[in-house]
Simulated scan of single mutants.
Amino acid sequence: MKIVLVCLFLSVSFYGFGQTSPKPVYYYDGNGDQIKKEEYLNKSSRYKGLDDRFMALAFEKDTCFIALLKKRKTIGKLSALQMKNMFSNLNEANSSSKPKFSIIQYHPGRDDCNNGNYKSIGIAYNIYHRRYLKELKTFFNYNMFWIHKKDETIKFHRAKYINWRLDKNQFIEKLFFEYHYGCHSFVIVNNLNGNYISILGESSGKTVIEMAKEINDL
């Protein structure tokens, strides 16, 4: 299965894609149930709140295109084994001495939205900006991990406060980020009970702060 379009935030973009293709397009919701095109376009609208917003994905098969919705925000819980494997993958000791939370910023590889740069100058709530990272530290006990998918075309720039690590065996991708979601994604995990909140696709530092406050109550 070949991914031809990802993160189609603009309904008109997908509409044009369907109109110019000789293959039929089949639409599915986040549960894998087939839905009508109108419902698909409505749910994938970028004007909805984060709790109600979906990512619009499209895949090419031999005889058709599959249009799939994925919920941008997911609240879930990791098993004890998943937690142990996650700590091992992140080279973190599985002990009570670690911070209460882990934040994983995930770079999915090159797409139209990113190229591996950490552009932080002038944008206070860019996810790579020190200001928002310092604000987060004032109320949230966490470790931050910067994980990227293997992509030989990207030369990851480094800063003293950003240490990019390769997603070994695509573990983080398989655990939290099933498909390629444009720009970047993140997940916050409670290291004590396995609860997590993940956000798919581009987000600002403000969204990370909002989710950090929310997960404190889970």
Rank of each mutant, 00 (worst) to 15 (best):
M1L: 13
L5C: 10
F14G: 10
Y15I: 15
Q19K: 14
P24K: 11
Y27V: 03
Y27M: 05
Y28E: 07
N31F: 14
D33H: 15
I35K: 04
K36P: 05
K37P: 07
L41G: 02
S45D: 11
K48H: 13
G49H: 15
L50H: 10
L57H: 03
F59D: 00
D62H: 12
T63Q: 10
K73N: 05
K73H: 04
I75P: 05
G76W: 10
L78Q: 01
L81M: 14
Q82W: 12
L90T: 04
E92T: 09
S95V: 04
S97A: 12
F101E: 01
F101S: 01
F101C: 04
D111Y: 02
C113Q: 06
C113Y: 11
C113D: 03
G116R: 09
Y118W: 13
K119N: 07
I123N: 15
I123M: 13
I123L: 15
K134T: 02
E135D: 13
E135C: 07
L136M: 08
L136I: 01
T138D: 13
F139R: 05
F140T: 00
F145P: 01
W146R: 02
K149E: 09
K150L: 14
D151T: 00
D151F: 06
E152M: 11
E152F: 12
I154V: 13
I154R: 03
F156S: 00
F156L: 12
K160M: 08
N163M: 10
N163G: 05
D167V: 06
D167G: 09
N169Y: 12
F171L: 14
I172E: 05
I172T: 08
I172R: 03
H184G: 01
I188Q: 09
V189Y: 09
L200V: 03
L200K: 06
E202V: 10
G205T: 07
A212P: 01
N216M: 15
D217I: 14
D217S: 15
L218D: 08
